[in-house]
Design a protein around this nucleic acid. Structure first.
Length: 263
DNA sequence: AAGCTAATGGAGATTACGTCA
DNA sequence: GCTGACGTAATCTCCATTAGC
């Protein structure tokens, strides 16, 4: 979130900088690309909290007279919330990392990036390989693992974290595509099965038309499978029209030809 | 121009901590 | 002093999206 965003504006808190962006005076960048950060540091009990305003590598310490009951005031609360969002956190993380790893060439690149806008990092093959290897072992990282990996790769922990996030997203996307393909195949199989069954129905209907009297009698001798209660035509040995008289006609594929054993 | 992917911002969940009754 | 409820801030992950290469 940039200082000029609506959230900040709505708080009634006006923050004026007595300097224009030193390296990009006239660039129409979105506010979030200007690496400002505002940090409210808690201090020892009784002291005034320290409000630190940072611009790229430059820090301006402002002793803010923040009342102790700030958090209980409704209107101020929104201001507190707006400044406690992730951006502030990330900038703090970055700044602490800068302090910790100021020997890193990438960090100085990052500072430059902050001034000149978003510059996309390209991971080296070695870095990618190591990240992949690590991802194979565990798809999520503990903070310690993240720190260690970041040190090993000469990256910021946030960059490692982001890489893992994106990697997980790619994995998920791939899995979704695989699932989609599986469902397509499954759908195709069911469609084939449906076609086959429809065809079978047509054949049975044709057979019924060919032998109307026979089928009429069959309807009169319908019975129910005792196990699954499926209705089937069952031959009656006492019935002169029973299908049992010529079982090949209907029972070739009929699981209920022997009802007791069918289910 | 399109695809890949690093980076960003928002939302939700969880945790830690302080305050109050 | 202890405890539970509550509010707030910090942190994390996921997700959708943006944007650089």
């Amino acid at each position: 979130m940039g200082i000029g965003d609506d959230d900040a504006c709505n708080t009634g808190l006006v923050l004026g900088l007595g300097l224009s962006s030193p390296s990009k005076p006239d660039h129409n960048q979105t506010p979030r690309k200007i690496p400002l950060f505002l940090k409210l540091e808690s201090t020892s009990f009784g002291d005034e909290p320290s409000l630190t305003l940072g611009l790229a590598t430059h820090k301006v310490d402002v002793k803010a007279a923040v009342g102790g009951d700030l958090y209980r005031q409704g209107s101020s609360l929104s201001a507190v919330y707006s400044f406690s969002s992730g951006k502030v956190k990330r900038e703090r993380e970055v700044s602490s990392e800068v302090e910790k790893n100021n020997n890193s060439s990438r960090i100085s690149d990052e500072d430059e990036e902050g001034v000149n806008g978003r510059k996309k990092l390209r991971l080296s093959k070695k870095q990618s390989a190591l990240l992949e290897e690590s991802f194979k072992q565990h798809t999520t990282l503990t903070p310690k693992q993240k720190q260690a990996l970041a040190r090993q790769l000469n990256l910021k922990p946030r960059q490692v974290e982001v890489w893992f996030q994106n990697r997980r997203a790619r994995t998920k996307l791939k899995q979704t595509e695989v699932d989609c393909e599986l469902l397509k195949k499954c759908c195709e199989t069911l469609r084939d099965e449906n076609r086959r069954l429809q065809k079978e129905i047509q054949e049975l209907k044709a057979l019924k038309l060919a032998q109307p009297f026979y089928m009429h009698m069959q309807g009169a001798t319908l019975t129910v499978c005792p196990s699954c209660e499926t209705t089937r035509g069952v031959g009656d040995s006492n019935n002169p029209y029973s299908m049992a008289s010529n079982p090949r006609h209907f029972y070739n594929n009929n699981p209920f030809s022997n009802p007791s054993a069918a289910c």
